[in-house]
Nucleic acid binder design. Structure first.
Lengths: 173, 173
DNA sequence: CAAAACTGATTGCATTTTGCAATCGGTTGC
DNA sequence: GCAACCGATTGCAAAATGCAATCAGTTTTG
């Protein structure tokens, strides 16, 4: 909440933006999960964020210029949160972070398949994804309309893995 | 300090490692500043870390496998902290983080020159840097001994910029 | 050889941040 | 009308943080 400015170091300033346990989780769910509403973020997060923390972080991310809020025309009191360009350009960082975590931390297979695909896709896939996010959140035209969206591709891979695991568990039982 | 495991998501797990305001700052000072001792980290950090927080984070980073501690042979009670491979592979993430911060946050010229050079150097420079860090911290042989070290290059650019700024300020006065 | 300075910490304590549970007033669907 | 849902807000306890003082051992200094 506070504008510290402990130093003008780029890494320090970045850390002042998401050097906490929730801000990046919220952005992850918006970017990869496509969530736009308060309730979606509240109930959808696997990590179980509390509603006051979510409200606080959404406010803070807006103050920092990472998100904008707009009324949902279909529902008078529903708010739609949108990523700004500043947040969309985090995609390569999230990809690297996921790749690093996949190597060094006790990740679960299902949840890391997305990170694996995103890593293998490399910069071209990240560019396509950012393009799609700009379309979704900023109303920009889609440069290239080639095949399924990156999010759908990642989601399909995740669901296929979950299904195959369930099958294996069934046949074992 | 706690081993949360809120979820097996790679991004979440990564966040549980450095989703705080100090852990990455310490690693930054070790990687880019070449600091190895408690006092160097305590007094050298621009952001002014408190000694108890530093002690706590060093302990935590050791438990996480990011650092190791050894006796300094030249000084019986001096401890030398070393980066592990796990920490050294953060270099690309730090480079991306610095690049992102340089674009979107109010960085200072002097402190962002390093990030700029590291970004421009790209993967080859990161590889060279990681190779040098493995030599320094893990005792590995240097693959390529080509020219000045990456850290020295970055440091020289920083000092040149500080000097030129001081000169400009002098001539203005 | 004793005093001073430095080593990596630790302790006590006040302040701030975090997280949980309950709740709020307004909106929507039935 | 009324239950379910909307984006929050409040009260409160627990944890993290930051500061200042301190520690015992080691090295340097005079």
């Amino acid at each position: 909440m506070s504008m510290d400015r402990r130093s003008g170091c780029p890494i320090n300033l970045s850390l002042e933006v998401f050097g906490d346990r929730w801000s990046l989780i919220i952005l992850r769910d918006m970017i990869f999960g496509g969530r736009r509403h308060f309730r979606e973020l509240l109930n959808g997060s696997m990590e179980g964020i509390a509603s006051n923390i979510l409200a606080d972080r959404l406010k803070r991310l807006m103050e920092l210029g990472m998100l904008t809020k707009a009324d949902d025309p279909s529902h008078k009191q529903k708010a739609i949160y949108s990523l700004t360009e500043m947040a969309i350009t985090l995609v390569p960082i999230l990809a690297h972070l996921g790749a690093w975590g996949r190597v060094w931390l006790p990740v679960s297979d299902e949840l890391s398949i997305r990170a694996e695909l995103l890593e293998k896709g490399g910069q071209p896939m990240w560019d396509k994804f950012m393009d799609e996010l700009r379309h979704e959140h900023l109303g920009m035209p889609l440069d290239t309309m080639s095949g399924p969206s990156v999010r759908a591709t990642l989601q399909a891979a995740y669901e296929a893995l979950v299904a195959s695991k369930a099958l294996a568990a069934d046949s074992a039982a």
